[in-house]
Design a protein around this nucleic acid. Structure first.
Lengths: 159, 159
DNA sequence: TGACTTCCCATGTTTTCCCATGTTATCCCA
DNA sequence: TGGGATAACATGGGAAAACATGGGAAGTCA
C-alpha cells in the first residue's frame, strides 16, 4: 500500500489545474490511467485523496462493519458517493473540481499533506494554523509502536 | 531491522548535500532506491530519520490506535505528514531539505547519531551540549536488559 | 457555436546525475 | 610488522534531467 508522507504546496492556476507532487505521482504510478480519488473530509475543512486500493477498503468496510441503513453506513457511504475519480496528465497536473476548491476554501494555492495510505489537500492558510496545533498535540502525545516483524504476509492478521 | 550505531559529523555543502555515513548506507542498502525518511522530532531540536520499514510501523500503529478521520489520528499523523522521503546518490549523498536544516539549526555541518532502529541528525553545537546532559542523566541510572534470545513477538518469520 | 475541457509545447527554476580530487582507511606482501 | 599499493570515502563543481507552471491549439458536449 502506498505511503504518502510530507507536505507540499503547489499553485492552482486559473483553469483549476494543480501539479500533484512528483513523489505522490510515483506512489500512484501503478494505478490505471494515472488516477486517484478525491472527496471532502467528513470532519475537517479539507479534501481527502486516495488510491483505488484505499477506496476499495472503504467500500469493503461498509459491507463488513456497517449495518445496512445505519449511521455508520451513512458516514462511509458519504465518502463513496462524494468521491470524484480524477486523473493527472503527462505533466503531472489534475483539475481540482470547483466544488471541491470551494468546499476547502482553496484559491490560488493548495497544500498537500501525506497521511500514510492517503493524503489531504488544504488551503495553505488554514493548514498553517492546523499545523501549529498538530505539532503542539504531537508533543504531549505518545504513540505506541506496533511490535516489530509486522506480518503483512500472513493475511489473517492478529488484531 | 536496521541497527544504526555510532556518531558521525559530515559537511553540508552549499547545495544542501550531505554524505550519509557509509555504514548507515550499508544498513539501508536493501531499501528501494537507496532511500530513507527524515522528519522533525516532535520533542527535541533535531531531526529523526528511519527506513521504510520503521515508517510503515508508524503508519500501521496509527491505524490500529485511532479511528480514521478522527482528531486522534490527525494528531498522531504529525510524523507522517512532516516526513520527507529522500534518497542518496551513487556517491552516498542526499539533500537535506532547507526547512529541515532550519528547524534543527543546521548550517554547514551535521551530526548523525545512531539510535538503533533509526538515527538522528543534529546541529553539532547543539548536540555537543545535549551530549553532556545525556551523560549526566545516565550516570546514576541502572538499566535492565531484555532477556537474551529476543523473541520476535509474533512467532512469525525470521529472515 | 460558445463554453468548457483536454492535450501539447514552451520556459525558467530546481534537483539530480556524473565526473574529478584529496584524504583516510584497508589490504597485501616482503 | 612496516610501508607502499589499493580501495573506500567525503566533498566540489558542472552538465543534464526533472519539475512546476503558463499559454495556446485542438477537441468535446450541449
Amino acid at each position: 500500500m502506498a505511503l504518502f508522507t510530507g507536505t507540499f504546496e503547489n499553485k492552482v492556476d486559473k483553469k483549476g489545474r494543480v501539479s500533484l507532487p512528483a513523489n505522490y505521482r510515483d506512489l500512484l504510478e501503478s494505478t490505471i490511467n494515472n488516477s486517484f480519488y478525491i472527496f471532502p473530509s467528513p470532519n475537517i475543512n479539507a479534501l481527502e485523496a486516495c488510491d483505488e486500493e484505499f477506496m476499495q477498503r472503504v467500500a469493503d468496510s461498509i459491507e463488513d462493519q456497517a449495518d445496512i441503513f445505519s449511521e455508520q453506513e451513512d458516514a462511509l457511504s458519504y465518502i463513496i458517493s462524494n468521491a470524484k475519480h480524477v486523473s493527472y496528465d503527462s505533466t503531472g497536473r489534475f483539475v481540482l473540481p470547483s466544488e471541491f476548491s470551494n468546499f476547502a476554501n482553496i484559491n490560488d494555492k493548495a497544500t498537500f499533506v501525506g497521511m500514510a495510505s492517503r493524503f489531504q489537500i488544504w488551503s495553505p492558510d488554514i493548514y498553517a494554523l492546523r499545523q501549529i496545533e498538530k505539532r503542539n498535540n504531537a508533543k504531549g502525545m505518545t504513540l505506541k509502536l506496533n511490535k516489530k516483524t509486522v506480518t503483512k504476509s500472513l493475511g489473517g492478521d492478529n488484531d
